[in-house]
Design a binder for these strands. Structure first.
Length: 552
RNA sequence: UGCCUGAUAGUAUAAUGGUAGUACGACUGUUUUUGGUGCAGUUUGUCUUGGUUCGAAUCCAGGUCGGGCAACCA
């Protein structure tokens, strides 16, 4: 308790409101539009909104902002609910802006009756023109002076379907000269004869964001409505609507959205990646979507930790991808089961091994004393990693080479005697002898080696496919880069490794288990993986100071 | 060039008129049957110019730079 974390600016506002007795309890909301899958940027908002309620006592509504029937689908609704749950949050109420369509229509009538809204027959182009520019005031048109009765009749006719799409709109009558463009008689309703995923064909007029969002917040008695910076200019309208309607005064607060290096956060662009097959699907493990990250092997804990670490502020930001990687490594290091998998194998023959085979044991997780051990079969003929042998080793190379000694993890120390190459000059087989008294756990050999290698017994190994992922884009700031974002897609973001061999324990492991393949990285079974064809996705590599050393 | 925002190490974030701190990154060293982990340490910062004050990252004024705003999208 004494080490309390400092509050971010929104937490301070809430703390002050509560201290001042403004509310007994707070109610926040997470309001996605169901027109795409949730991504890591949404996770930031989810953690903020649900975290606030958890911290200060209160609740959070999950509200679907479904006011645009042409872009929204039930598939998205379902994925959003699954993602929020997976992240570990429960909402107080599941709400839909579309549930308020009747109330919202009533609000519009009220505005018309107060002389604060009118039906405009102008085309989108005309309206845009009449709005002026940021430096030049807008001009009105004749429709602005329609009588209350006429507006009411017309609006009712709009609802009844008397007009075609685009023929008329309902506009608020505020101020065409306002320096805030959003106050220059904003559109409240438009005609859209489209099928809505929830209300079907009941409606042919739909409220705009600015006439749905604040009103929905108010209907639900949301105390703190938190959104991203680009909505700051909308706040005046948000407050205007609530004031004119005399409804519950929800308040809007804004924070900076998340940006990350080497990826994009725009739903529109993510949809493009899916539709144009740059990735396989919304849950492609390379995507920054929650479902993609889940499939890749990220844990909800690590994502929550990440959101905690990046903080909340109003300044534009771009977070290093390496921070996310740090968070997931930190969690996985504690919980992942260690297994041995050789990805690019060469043969290792233990010339003096006459036992045939034996069962050795290796700890499941050195971080967890209660993690237990697993059986690992050992034999005369093994697979080791091609990278772990060097014909002409450099000074700092701790692995195998002519006359060099290493330990085979959880097994014996060996010494390389000779090696063979194939017709292309590539190493094919390494011959070594082992020291029986160096057996792991009962080593009396007195030999000290610098390197320890992972290995699998050729006879017992199971074939596995590995999906090794790299960053989706080649540049740090994709959104800020010149030209089309698709020009920066990393063509090597996925490497499918089909030559790998894993230890047989993998066959008995749960599909949900998180693994660390020793010295390789953290892996998680793909959704396409089966008992007879194991497929693992690489969540993240291990930190590799050797690779860094080599680059010098 | 109208309005709205923001500016603290490479990246984030704290300090709420009183010692500029933390995390990630980078770099050392150490431990290690994972070149992983752990541990110890080093490194780099208040956009600028004035002002108020005993004292300014913080308050005031001017400037500079970044972001947003003129969708029948949210």
């Amino acid at each position: 308790m004494s080490e309390e974390k400092s509050l971010n600016f929104i937490e301070e506002i809430v703390a002050q409101d509560l201290a001042a007795g403004k509310y007994d309890a707070i109610l926040t909301r997470f309001p996605p539009e169901p027109n795409g899958y949730l991504h890591i940027g949404h996770a930031k908002s989810i953690c903020l909104n649900f975290g606030l309620a958890k911290h200060f006592g209160g609740g959070t509504n999950l509200r679907f902002d479904d006011t645009n029937p042409t872009t929204e689908e039930t598939e998205y609704v379902e994925s959003i609910k699954a993602d929020v749950k997976w992240l570990g949050f429960d909402w107080v109420k599941e709400c839909y802006a579309s549930d308020y369509f009747d109330t919202l229509y009533g609000f519009a009538i009220q505005l018309i009756e107060k002389g604060l809204a009118y039906v405009d027959d102008s085309s989108p182009e005309e309206i845009a023109l009449q709005k002026g520019t940021p430096t030049v005031a807008g001009t009105g048109n004749a429709y602005r002076n329609r009588s209350i009765e006429e507006n009411k009749t017309l609006f009712e006719a709009m609802k009844a379907g008397a007009f075609e799409d685009g023929a008329k709109v309902l506009r608020a009558k505020i101020d065409l000269g306002n320096p805030n463009m959003h106050l220059r008689d904003p559109l409240l309703y438009r005609i859209k004869k489209a099928h809505h995923h929830r209300t079907g064909d009941k409606w042919c007029i739909y409220p705009m964001y600015d006439f749905a969002h604040g009103q929905s917040d108010s209907i639900e008695n949301i105390t703190h409505s938190i959104c991203t910076l680009e909505f700051i200019p909308h706040r005046a309208l948000y407050d205007w609507g609530i004031e004119q309607l005399g409804i519950f005064p929800s308040k809007q607060y804004e924070f900076a959205r998340l940006n990350m290096t080497y990826t994009i956060m725009s739903k529109r662009k993510l949809l493009q990646l899916v539709q144009e097959n740059h990735v396989e699907s919304w849950d492609d493990p390379r995507m920054p979507t929650i479902s993609g990250m889940r499939r890749r092997g990220y844990t909800p804990e690590s994502i929550r930790d990440f959101c905690e670490r990046i903080g909340i502020a109003k300044r534009e930001n771009i977070i290093d991808f390496s921070l996310l990687e740090f968070c997931v490594r930190e969690h996985l290091n504690k919980i992942a089961q260690r297994r041995m998998v050789v990805t690019d194998p060469i043969q290792l023959i233990i010339s003096n091994y006459e036992l045939g085979e034996e069962i050795l044991h290796s700890e499941n997780n050195p971080e967890d004393p209660d993690g237990g051990v697993r059986a690992v079969p050992f034999s005369k003929e093994l697979w080791i990693e091609r990278d772990d042998f060097m014909e002409l080793p450099t000074k700092k190379y701790f692995r195998l080479g002519p006359d060099l000694m290493v330990r085979l993890k959880s097994a014996y120390i060996i010494k390389c005697d000779s090696f063979d190459k194939d017709e292309h000059g590539n190493i094919k087989t390494v011959y070594a002898s082992y020291f029986p008294e160096s057996k792991s756990g009962s080593d009396t050999s007195g030999i000290h080696v610098k390197g320890t290698l992972h290995w699998v017994s050729a006879k017992h190994a199971v074939p596995v496919t590995l999906n090794e992922y790299d960053r989706l884009f080649k540049v740090e700031d994709v959104a800020g880069a010149e030209g089309d974002f698709k020009d920066y897609i990393n063509p090597n973001s996925l490497t499918k490794v089909t030559t790998a061999w894993g230890e047989p324990a993998l066959l008995e492991d749960s599909k949900e288990a998180r693994f660390q393949f020793l010295r390789k990285g953290y892996f998680y079974q793909d959704t396409t993986s089966t008992q007879t064809a194991l497929v693992f996705n690489r969540t993240v590599t291990l930190k590799d100071t050797w690779a860094k050393e080599q680059k010098k």
